[in-house]
Every structure is written in structure tokens, then in C-alpha cells.
């Protein structure tokens, strides 16, 4: 474990908690893309299948449980508990254009042609594009609540920090996973536009508004 990975995990966890609290406290999922949250639930499910078979550490197992449980809870709140506030008209990104190519790619490019490894690879590829429906929805509505932009910032920073974690691990642990690194780069690049707006607008107290 290194500081970059730890801060990355904390950033990821806080993003998940911010979103859960935003929906639960405001009893509304306005401006939140249910499709992205569905994709995240798929990402965690396909990535943590080894949750019961491969014990790494208490930290690793407990974080995995929290991630899976909170992603399902978020999907449940959006599509069931507060579905009256779900803005389906603006959450129109075609997720099949994300799921099918990443599924095919995970069969073609992976470290080992075994079910668990292919599912892990699929989850890595899917995670790199899972935020697109949410970013698409923000651009369609032309704006995002400030709390939603904090959620997006924390979520984007987590994988950026993981990039530094992989540099660190390559340097000091001879650890190198090209699939995770390339997908992590793609994921981080997708946030660049948002990062720019967040830093130039939200941090100055303005509302996040995208040119629609």
C-alpha cells in the first residue's frame, strides 16, 4: 500500500458516500444518471467475484463489501425508492455501446483466458467508460448541482491518484499491469473537461454549467 493508492481509495469511498448521502438526505436523485450507477454496480460485481475465495487483507475485503453494498443501494434508491425523482428523459446514453465493446475487448485483450480473469478485465474496461452516461447527462441538462460536481471530482481524482500509485509500484515493487494502466488513463482523460470546469467554476463558488 502507498499513499497514492490509499488517498485514491479514500477519494473513491468519499465519492460513493457523497452520492449516497445526497440522494438519501435530499430524497431525490435529480441530475444523477441511473445508467452510470448501474454500470458501477456491474463493475464491482464482476471485479470482486473473488471476494470470498481470495483474502488479501481486512482492509481489502471490507472496502470491497462497502463498494458493492453501496453501489447496489444507490441503484435501488434511483430505480426504486426515489424513482419518481429520476430524470429518465435526460439519462439517455446508450449503455449497450459501452457494455458490448468492453465485453468483446475483454475476451481479446486480457492477462489470462479464464472466466475470473476475463470478468476482471471486463470490469476494468467498463469502469473506464462507466461515467460517460453521467457526463452526458450533465452536458444535456447543461448544469449539475454543486454536490454532484463534488461527487464527480472525488470520483475522477481517485483513478488519477491510482495512476501515481502505478508509477510508484513500478518504481519500487516492479508491479506493472498494462491493462489497468491504459484503462485508468482513458478514465482520467474523460474527466479532464470536467476537472477544468470544476476548478475554474465550482471552486470559485459558481454553479457548474456546461455549454449544452
Amino acid at each position: 500500500m502507498n499513499i497514492f493508492r490509499f488517498l485514491g481509495d479514500i477519494s473513491h469511498l468519499s465519492a460513493i458516500i457523497i452520492l449516497l448521502l445526497k440522494i438519501w438526505k435530499s430524497r431525490s436523485c435529480a441530475g444523477i444518471s441511473g445508467k452510470s450507477q448501474l454500470l458501477f454496480a456491474i463493475v464491482f460485481t464482476t471485479r470482486y467475484l473473488d471476494l470470498f475465495t481470495n483474502f488479501i487483507s481486512f482492509y481489502n475485503t471490507s472496502m470491497k463489501v462497502v463498494y458493492v453494498a453501496s453501489s447496489y443501494a444507490t441503484v435501488w434508491m434511483i430505480y426504486s425508492k426515489f424513482k419518481a425523482t429520476y430524470d429518465g428523459n435526460h439519462d439517455t446514453f446508450r449503455v449497450e455501446f459501452l457494455i458490448v465493446p468492453t465485453a468483446i475487448l475483454s475476451f481479446l485483450v486480457n492477462h489470462d483466458f479464464t472466466p475470473l480473469e476475463i470478468l476482471w478485465t471486463f470490469s476494468i474496461y467498463l469502469e473506464s467508460v462507466a461515467i460517460l452516461p453521467q457526463l452526458f447527462m450533465v452536458s444535456k441538462t447543461g448544469e449539475a448541482e454543486t454536490i454532484t460536481s463534488h461527487y464527480l471530482f472525488a470520483l475522477g481524482i481517485y483513478r488519477t491518484l491510482y495512476l501515481f500509485n502505478w508509477i510508484w509500484r513500478y518504481q519500487f515493487e516492479e508491479f506493472f499491469d498494462l491493462i489497468a494502466i491504459v484503462a485508468g488513463l482513458v478514465q482520467t482523460v474523460l474527466y479532464c473537461d470536467f476537472f477544468y470546469l470544476y476548478i475554474t467554476k465550482v471552486l470559485k463558488g459558481k454553479k457548474l454549467s456546461l455549454p449544452a
Binding site: 481509495d9 473513491h12 488479501i56 463498494y67 492477462h111 491510482y162 500509485n165 499491469d177
Partner: peptide
């Protein structure tokens, strides 16, 4: 095939 990197990350 080359060694699969260990899966100790979240």
C-alpha cells in the same frame, strides 16, 4: 504465458 499481475488492488 507471462505471470498475471497479482490482484491486490480494489
Amino acid at each position: 504465458d507471462e505471470e498475471t499481475p497479482q490482484k491486490d488492488e480494489l
